[in-house]
Design a protein around this nucleic acid. Sequence first.
DNA 1: ATTCCAATCTGGACACTGTCAAGCTGGTGG
DNA 2: CCACCAGCTTGACAGTGTCCAGATTGGAAT
Lengths: 190, 190
Amino acid sequence: MSSSKDGYHHGDLARALEDAAMQLLERMPAAEISLREVARAANVSHNAPYHHFSDRLGLLKALAERSMADLLDRVRSATAAAPDPRAALAAGGTAYIRYAVEHPHAFDAVYDPTVCVPGSPTATMAPLIDALEGALADAALAAGLDRPGDVVALWGLVHGLGTLAAAGHFTLDDALAAASTALDRLLPAA
Amino acid sequence: MSSSKDGYHHGDLARALEDAAMQLLERMPAAEISLREVARAANVSHNAPYHHFSDRLGLLKALAERSMADLLDRVRSATAAAPDPRAALAAGGTAYIRYAVEHPHAFDAVYDPTVCVPGSPTATMAPLIDALEGALADAALAAGLDRPGDVVALWGLVHGLGTLAAAGHFTLDDALAAASTALDRLLPAA
DNA sequence: ATTCCAATCTGGACACTGTCAAGCTGGTGG
DNA sequence: CCACCAGCTTGACAGTGTCCAGATTGGAAT
């Protein structure tokens, strides 16, 4: 039967539920996504999700992990495609900010403390966070930013710009321009 | 009657409800605060709040405005107490980050897009946001940061550091240290 | 091939929530 | 003295997360 959609046994309901929820995440914040609505979208009873996720929070965690993997991918390929270290750092930051603005609800889900407390993250989430921070650290070091607080500051910079732009406090273009001028000031020699 | 707490007519229920809700905000995120719970805490029926706030969102907006006013106060008095422009900028940023970490739920409420879309903010919220941005702009300019994207970048920096520290991705001390080294790099002459 | 099992899905139930509609209360202006 | 009306209350409805007990299935062991 493999993955036929209907019938008593679904094939891969977990995946289907996540897919449906991810689609909802494009249009509404995670807080407004109801488990029952996701179940409805997947054509199963309101209780079927409980056989694949412990909680509503379980589903949310899965969404956060998917989104984080997505974000990490974009940042990585952006830095990889850049010609020099400085451009790589700029491209990574741009990708980060752009993701926050273009997928605001997914971005929020990733960093929602009620979804994933960094003190005890999911087994899937922890390495993703580390990888993101690692990618940033590598790019920062290659560009010449080697002081202790530099990578945290850079993370904070792009995170804040992305968050505020996503919330509508200024434009994506403004955020990108601000990141650019900030990099100009931060990097040692022009 | 004035402000006696019980009885059919309450005196200033709106205030009492906001106070109760603010207390709850110290312990739990805004999303988990239920209107009925607030009503219970104020010893009124579950429907009394509707005579003072249009919605659940109405209460949330009031909380956000209060919190924003609080945040603005702290940033302002921090910058005002500093000896020189550079110290003022640093103190303002520190106050901002500290508020995010010490009152994470209030801070989140302020910037929650579902509570207050910056495109059409509350009549009370709009001037507060402008004032905060203005305070930052003044401090930045006085410290010598006069390029177009500078104030947005500074806002993004402290906002991101505060948010990430509040979410537990690093310590408050790490955030403050990062802000400090970033300022060192950003400011023209040492 | 038949039987059985464990995973999967279903329906019903409970407490809780936001919100609407209507009724009670008690101080204030006529 | 009375009628009014803002402030508060009770009641009801739909929607939600979650627990429970039953129904259904595909595949494994015999």
